[in-house]
């Protein structure tokens, strides 16, 4: 599914002394099957933006088209349908677990979709497997006796069980340890390639964004600063720093190395790519 954001503006508490313009005339198109990263400092408008994509917030002006259809011009019943297609995983989604068992919690979405018991069961099994957990070992456990990383996965599985075509994740790795981070990212990546769903990833980790996405949306004070490939975005070091962001450590390294090796490429943002480029330049 493609998502087209057209001249989207959102003002909180409009007309009151607390009026705050969180989004200002945003227009971008997220292509079907693409993997988009969103970066911006706290308060830049990232969360406000993604909450428009499945109609949780209504724009002050402008609109969002999902597969060509204006989601704010549809009937309420259609909007509910849309939320099944555009799955949103909030920050710290484990805070939203509530059922007695993992199986019931993950099955809550599909149950509300009105699916049959068999279908629900199948989806629950599949999505628990997709997030790298053992269905039989975990299905009867209370979500609250799991570790932080497991809870996070169960919460993500709950959204996957609705089989969304667009998956939006707001900092899915915050607070996880390095291995947990890597595993969740790898699962999101394989979900994207295998199921060809559109993924939108909000993250503060430039390293993760650099590794994962096709295109980065940089947002500052409610406005689009860049919407381009990581190669292009991460070479804009001074602009990024001026809006409270950074580039991956290796990107800084490449810039420093350029003084001695003028031919070295600067559009490098993973350790793997840095290794190749350094070897190439040094070995000549």
């Amino acid at each position: 599914m493609s998502v087209e954001i057209k001249n989207l503006s959102h003002t909180y508490s409009e007309g009151s002394p607390f009026e705050f313009r969180a989004l200002k005339d945003i227009s971008i198109t997220i292509e079907n099957g693409s993997f988009i990263g969103i970066i911006g400092h706290t308060g830049s408008g990232k969360s406000t933006l993604i909450q428009h994509l499945n109609g949780l917030l209504t724009p002050t002006s402008g609109t969002v088209l999902v597969d060509g259809k204006d989601i704010f011009e549809t009937k309420k019943s259609e909007l509910i349908q849309l939320r099944h297609h555009v799955g949103l995983v909030f920050q710290y989604p484990e805070h939203q677990l509530f059922e007695e068992t993992v199986q019931k919690d993950v099955g809550f979405g599909p149950k509300n979709q009105g699916l049959s018991e068999d279908e629900i069961d199948q989806r629950v099994r599949q999505s628990i497997k997709m997030v790298g957990l053992d269905f039989d070992a975990i299905k009867d456990k209370s979500p609250f006796e799991l570790s932080g990383g497991q809870m996070r996965r169960v919460a993500i599985a709950g959204v996957l069980a609705m089989e969304p075509s667009v998956l939006i994740l707001d900092e899915p790795t915050a607070g996880l340890d390095p291995r947990g981070r890597e595993e969740i990212l790898a699962q999101i990546k394989s979900l994207h390639t295998q199921k060809q769903i559109t993924v939108v990833l909000v993250s503060h980790s430039m390293e993760d964004i650099g590794k994962m996405v096709d295109k980065i949306l940089v947002i500052n004070e409610g406005e689009v600063v860049f919407f381009d490939t990581p190669n292009r975005v991460f070479t804009e070091i001074s602009t990024l720093e001026s809006i409270g962001l950074a580039v991956p450590q290796v990107t800084y390294l490449m810039r420093r190395l350029k003084e001695k090796y003028p031919e070295i490429r600067e559009d490098i943002f993973t350790v793997e790519a840095a290794k190749k480029e350094i070897l190439k330049v040094i070995r000549g």
């Binding site: 390095p178 947990g180 350790v271 070897l279």
Partner: peptide, 18 residues
């Protein structure tokens, strides 16, 4: 043990491997 190292240390490790 499921931990990471700073990016520069990892890069040094990889380059030494080469």
């Amino acid at each position: 043990i499921g931990l990471d190292v700073p990016q520069m240390t990892e890069l040094a490790y990889e380059l030494r491997g080469e």
